[in-house]
């Protein structure tokens, strides 16, 4: 499976993936803003502005955009980027699931999907704010996780 189709399967269940991709694609053509994921958030939490967006998925949505799609989760805390890293984990019922960590919560993955863990990205973000307290993210928090040398 490609990364994108695996994410779709995660988020919507494999059976629903094709339908959802088609609908999302049509919305992108009409109004780009409609491609926003319903789980995206922008709010204040414990005195900090937090913003999170989920990756755009679905074959139609990707091609309609005609540009490199946002393929990763993005989090900003008070406007500073917190990069989110995918980690393959053993799934509860066997197989593999994807967990997510950040530079702030590095050893405690959260699950993100469209079902029971639909608030996963928000949970990850709130945890980071809890750790930060009265401090802020630095540029190192937004640095990409994969280093090519």
């Amino acid at each position: 499976m490609s990364t994108v189709s695996r994410r779709d399967a995660l988020r919507y269940g494999a059976a629903a993936a094709a339908v959802v991709a088609g609908v999302a694609g049509a919305q992108v053509l009409a109004t780009p803003a409609a491609a926003r994921d319903p789980r995206d958030f922008e709010m204040e939490y414990r005195g900090k502005k937090i913003k999170g967006t989920h990756p755009v998925t679905g074959v139609a949505a990707l091609s309609a955009r005609g540009q490199r799609p946002n393929r990763s989760h993005e989090v900003y805390i008070n406007g500073r980027k917190l990069s989110v890293m995918e980690i393959e984990l053993p799934a509860a019922g066997g197989g593999v699931t994807i967990g997510y960590i950040s530079a702030i919560n590095h050893y405690e993955p959260v699950l993100i999907d469209a079902d029971r863990n639909s608030n996963g990205l928000l949970k990850l973000t709130k945890r980071a704010v809890d750790v930060l307290g009265d401090t802020e993210l630095t540029a190192l928090a937004g640095a990409g996780h994969d280093h090519v040398r």
Binding site: I87, L89, A103, I104, Y107, V131, L140
Partner: peptide
């Protein structure tokens, strides 16, 4: 990353910088 999780748990238990990438 698999239970019972020895190493990661202690990082989380200390928290603060110990829970971070640094």
């Amino acid at each position: 990353w698999q239970t019972p999780n020895l190493h990661n748990s202690a990082h989380v238990w200390v928290g603060g910088h110990m829970g971070q990438q640094d």
